[in-house]
Structure formats: structure tokens, C-alpha cells
Design a protein around this nucleic acid. Structure first.
Length: 563
RNA sequence: UGGGGUGUGGUGUAAUUGGUAACACGACGGACUCUGACUCCGUUAUUCUAGGUUCAAGUCCUAGCACCCCAGCCA
């Protein structure tokens, strides 16, 4: 955790959570701030989790407290070491450090067990021998009260004995559970004698086969918070009606501290899904290449896509923290990415759909080395050389044989600038038998070297290009939204029906300017006029692979669409 | 009359706690431009509804309405 200046006020973020903390500190209800980020290791972290991570770690930093990373590993049926490792890597990548404060709910299994016995001894919990179905039937409905289990009032000594035998492994999975004894007629379903322990014979990633009974989330979470002296336990809205149970347990157990739970709205993002169930399904059924598929909203996917962690933090900061259900427009995320990358990303040139142009008045075999600025946002920061020769590639989109009035690019007889190079004029259009344009002939103006005409002549268009003889061939993967609907699955549809069939387009023969050979993975750059890209780990020395992180804003595309 | 939440522009948030709706994104229009990018300048709201209190209501009161969550031995 990084040391921060003064206890948050003034410039820091403001929201209802921070207001509460400020009040708690001022009133002395809390002497410091301890939060926790409590992932269940049954999947990968996604951008929704980033909101929680930034909130929990952010708040702790701002108020000079600490934030624990705690794995909520209470269900070995679903949890795996792979996820534990990935989650830690992702939190670090996002830019947060839990220092030595790494915990697991499983660290507390023994204490939790002892406290369960305490509840039994005090007549506040009992071992129920109803089946899962019977328990459901007894629970009642939203509008009707539940019925007591026949085991509800059995002597605590009997429950204690049963519970110990559950631990000892005498019963089959699901045969019995430990339930809190609260109120079967409660309006809040969570208070109708919730299950505290169940029998699950599955090896646990951390405790192995030491246990065959495992605490439920409801039982483990608050007590873990208390053991860690968490002051503010921040979670999402769906846990709001678990709070009475959270408080009930804290009240009836000899816990060392009294944490409080506060709920905020989870993040929903347009054109994507952020539920673990769905993300897991996308991976399991092969709709994407894996958890780190660049189309996934997972942190590992975003990283592979070339999204810098700074942009995720910035994005989350702009969201605010409230209790309102909302769906954030994807464009806000795009804006954050572009704003950051515009400043941070170096520029290079690459041609995705090549159209050859032969500069007829350029001497055969001659090469010019031109200076290209690394990043025009900071012209002083450096430049690199780009070779120019007689045959170059430009983008097919940058030529039209019969251009409309608003088209600024190349056309028969038109003059344009080749970025950082020369003005060229198209003199001839070469077509194949089908009439498709296969090559252009052009002349260049030697006086325009570097891209300016000494006579003050202006051109409306500037094109990116690459020298055919020097270009490096590459595969480029163009990613688009994974879903074509802003709200996948809206209106009762299966969300899978909204999968975007063109979310990935692979270009196998793109041409890159030579300085891109060996470009390191993990350093996002801009292909001029096309967008931001990053090298993918699938690339080889012979065939680099680049992922499109994000396009540039494209007002020309809009002009075209609107006719 | 099951319980718990939430309603401010297309979107996400703000409003010194009753003082005349602010910021950002988007959209639209324009300027600039060696990236149709960036940047810059405009335009974009009768605060869910209906009553009420008040000199003054997004903020207070009353009654409605809409939407979200909950009936896992998931978290």
C-alpha cells in the first residue's frame, strides 16, 4: 500500500461510503480504517471487480488504513488454485499491493468451527437432518412464512454431538447441515434459519482434506471480517438483505471486533456481460479463446488487449460509488483508454489492407530515411527513422476511384501527403481483369520531403504508408464488442444469441514499418490513423501478432454512414 | 400491506444540507490540424408522478407509480 498524504478530504473522491467513514472517524466510532477485497477463487477478476478493488484499496489508502486481500474460499466444490494465483496477479497488475495482508477464510476454519459450537451451546444453532429439498419446502415463500424443521428444537447437546460427528466425517455429503436458529417467519428469507455449515467431501486448495464440513458465505464472511478487524466491509447491493444476518452473527458471537457492512451498486457495462456465471460459460463453451481472450472484460483479457491499468483506475474513478443500479456506456471506457493512450502511446505506421503504389519518378533502388516523431503530443521526446522507397503500400480505404466531394484522400489526379514523407499525386489506376484496383501509379514532389510544401501548397489528406521493400509482415487481430447488443440478453433473449459474430477479424498479411520488428508485448502503441495496438504473446520473430486495443475516434466513418 | 433497496438530461455522477440544476461521457454544429486523431468553441434537463408546506423545494411532508434484489447445503 502506498503512503498517502493526509486523511482524505478536499481533493479526494467523495461518495456516501467515504462520507460514512469520515463520520465514523470524526465520531470516534472507528479509530482507523480497515477494508478487504474478498474474491471467491472460482473465476477470473473482471472490470466489475476493479470497481471494488479500487474502492477498497482506495479508501484504505486515502484514510491511512489498510486493505486485506482475503480469499473467500469456503466452497471447495468450485474453487481452484489456478484462480487464486490469477487473482493475485491481476490485483497487482491493476496497481494495488496488500503487503503482508493476505488472508483466506480457510485460515479461520478452526475458529469458525469453535464459534459454531458456541452458537449451538447457546441454543442459537442446530443440526438439521432434513434434505435440501425438504429445507426448501419448509422455508416458505416470499409471501408465506416458513415452517419449523422437526429438528429445530432438539436439545443442544444432541446438536453438538451431531455437529462433531459431521466434522468427523460420519455422514454423507448433504446428509445434515448446521442452521442458525433465528425466525422461520421472518420477512427476510435470509433470517429463516440460514445454513451455516454443510458437508462437502472435496479437497480444498489450501486445507486439503482436513475438513469435510465447510462454512457458508454468510457464516464465514462477517466473522472473518471481525477477526481481521475490518472496520468497513464493502460489498455489492445483492448482499443488502444479508446484513441483518451479518449483524446477528456478530452480535451473538464473541468476536474481537464489530465490523459493519455497507453496500454499493455493482458495475454494469454496455456491450458486455459481467457475471461470473456467464463469463465462465463463455470460456467453457468456447465462445472465446479463454479467460484472457482480448474480448473478455476480465482484467487478464483487458491486459492482453493492451488496456493499461491506469485507464481502468481512471474509468472506475469517474464512475462514482452509489446505490443506484446503472449501466455505464461503453463509450466512457473508450474515452478513458484513448485519453491515456493518446499521451502515452508511441506512433508507428502499419497498413492493414495494402494497396501498392509505385512512385514512378522515384529512382529504382533508392531509399530515403525519414524522421517520424514518436509521439506528436510530446514532439521533443524523440523520433525514429522510416524508410521510403519506390514502392509503398497504402490502405485500400485511402483510395477511391470516384471519390465523393468530402473524401480527402487519394483519387485519380489527386495529391495527398504521405505522413512524414512526400506529397504524391495519383497518375494511373491499375486494375485486374475483374476491374478491381490492384495498384496505383503516382509521382512525388521532391520539394515536399518531410511533408511540407515550400510553396505553401496545402493538401487536405495525409495518409499512413509503409515501404514495400522494408515492411515487416504481421498478423493483426481486430477486436470488436463481444456482443452486438448493448444489453445482451435483454427482453428475455438468451444472451448468447447476442454474441457478435464479427467480434474478431484476423488480418493475416498486414505490413508494419520496420521499427516494429521485435516490439515488446505489453507496450501499447498507436498505428497512425488506425488505432491503438499491442503485440500479442502469440507472435513469433517471423510473424509478429498485434491486437487492436481500440480504434481511434472515427468521424469519417460517421460521415459515410450518414450518406 | 412478504422483506430489502433505488428514482436528477441519451449515459454516469454532483448540488455548500431549503436559495434558483454543476461536471464528465455521448450526440449534434463549428474552428484548428502533417493522424478525418488530439485540442478548442457552441447546443443538448419543466430533478418518477400528483398534491402540500414555504418568499423559495432536486432537497421537507403526504399519497401514488416504476425499476432492482431475495425462496442455493453459491458467493
Amino acid at each position: 500500500m502506498t503512503e498517502t498524504s493526509s486523511p482524505a478530504d478536499a481533493d479526494g473522491p467523495r461518495d456516501f461510503i467515504r462520507d460514512i467513514i469520515r463520520d465514523d472517524l470524526a465520531s470516534g466510532r472507528a479509530r482507523g480504517v480497515v477494508t478487504r477485497f474478498p474474491p471467491e477463487p472460482n473465476g477470473y477478476l473482471h472490470i466489475g471487480h476493479a470497481k471494488s478493488i479500487c474502492l477498497n484499496f482506495g479508501v484504505a489508502n486515502e484514510f491511512g488504513g489498510r486493505c486485506n486481500l482475503r480469499f473467500d474460499d469456503t466452497n471447495p466444490a468450485k474453487e481452484e488454485q489456478e484462480f487464486i494465483d490469477a487473482i493475485m496477479a491481476d490485483v497487482r497488475w491493476l496497481g494495488f499491493d496488500w503487503g503482508g495482508n493476505l488472508f483466506h477464510a480457510s485460515d479461520y476454519f478452526e475458529q469458525l468451527y469453535q464459534w459454531a459450537e458456541h452458537l449451538i451451546e447457546n441454543g442459537l444453532a442446530y443440526v438439521d437432518e432434513l434434505t435440501a429439498d425438504e429445507i426448501r419446502e419448509h422455508r416458505g415463500t416470499l409471501t408465506e412464512p416458513g415452517k419449523a424443521s422437526p429438528w429445530r428444537d432438539r436439545p443442544s447437546g444432541e446438536s453438538l454431538d451431531q455437529f462433531r460427528r459431521m466434522r468427523a466425517g460420519e455422514f454423507a455429503d448433504g446428509a445434515k447441515v448446521l442452521r442458525a436458529k433465528i425466525d422461520m417467519a421472518h420477512g427476510n428469507m435470509n433470517m429463516r434459519d440460514p445454513v451455516l455449515y454443510r458437508i462437502v467431501r472435496k479437497p480444498h486448495p489450501r486445507t486439503g482434506d482436513a475438513w469435510c464440513i465447510y462454512p457458508t458465505y454468510d457464516y464465514a464472511h462477517g466473522q472473518s471480517d471481525a477477526l481481521e478487524h475490518v472496520t468497513h466491509s464493502l460489498c455489492t447491493l445483492e448482499f443488502e438483505d444479508h446484513r441483518p444476518l451479518y449483524d446477528w452473527l456478530i452480535e451473538h458471537l464473541p468476536v474481537p471486533s464489530r465490523p459493519r457492512q455497507y453496500e454499493f451498486a455493482r458495475l454494469n457495462l454496455g456491450y458486455t456481460v459481467l457475471s461470473k456465471r456467464r463469463l465462465t460459460q463463455l470460456v467453457a463453451e468456447g465462445h472465446v479463446a479463454g479467460w484472457d481472450d482480448p474480448r473478455m472484460p476480465t482484467l487478464t483479457g483487458l491486459r492482453r488487449r493492451g488496456i493499461p491499468p491506469e485507464t481502468i483506475r481512471d474509468f472506475v474513478a469517474r464512475l462514482g460509488v452509489t446505490k443506484q443500479d446503472s449501466v455505464v456506456e461503453f463509450s466512457l471506457f473508450e474515452h478513458c483508454v484513448r485519453e491515456y493512450l493518446n499521451k502515452a502511446a508511441e506512433r508507428r505506421m502499419a497498413v492493414l489492407r495494402p494497396l501498392k503504389v509505385v512512385i514512378e519518378n522515384w529512382p529504382e533502388g533508392e531509399v530515403d530515411e525519414l524522421d517520424a516523431i514518436d509521439n506528436p503530443e510530446f514532439p521533443e521526446s524523440g523520433s525514429h527513422k522510416v524508410p521510403f522507397s519506390r514502392e509503398i503500400y497504402i490502405e485500400q480505404d485511402d483510395f477511391m476511384e470516384d471519390p465523393p466531394k468530402k473524401f480527402f484522400r487519394l483519387g485519380p489526379g489527386r495529391e495527398v501527403r504521405l505522413r512524414y514523407a512526400y506529397f504524391i499525386t495519383c497518375t494511373e489506376v491499375v486494375k485486374d481483369a475483374d476491374g478491381t484496383v490492384v495498384e496505383l501509379r503516382a509521382t512525388y514532389d521532391p520539394a515536399t520531403r518531410g511533408g511540407d510544401a515550400p510553396d505553401g501548397r496545402k493538401v487536405k489528406g495525409t495518409l499512413h504508408w509503409v515501404s514495400a521493400a522494408h515492411a515487416v509482415k504481421a498478423e493483426v487481430r481486430l477486436y470488436d464488442h463481444l456482443f452486438r447488443e448493448e444489453a445482451p440478453g435483454a427482453g428475455g433473449r438468451d444472451y448468447l444469441e447476442d454474441l457478435n459474430p464479427t467480434s474478431l477479424e484476423v488480418i493475416e498479411d498486414a505490413w508494419l514499418e520496420p521499427s516494429l520488428a521485435g516490439w515488446p508485448a505489453g507496450r501499447t502503441l498507436q498505428f497512425e490513423r488506425l488505432g491503438y495496438f499491442c503485440a500479442d504473446r502469440d507472435g513469433t520473430a517471423d510473424m509478429p501478432v498485434f491486437n487492436r486495443t481500440m480504434t481511434l475516434r472515427d468521424t469519417w466513418a460517421k460521415v459515410q454512414q450518414s450518406g
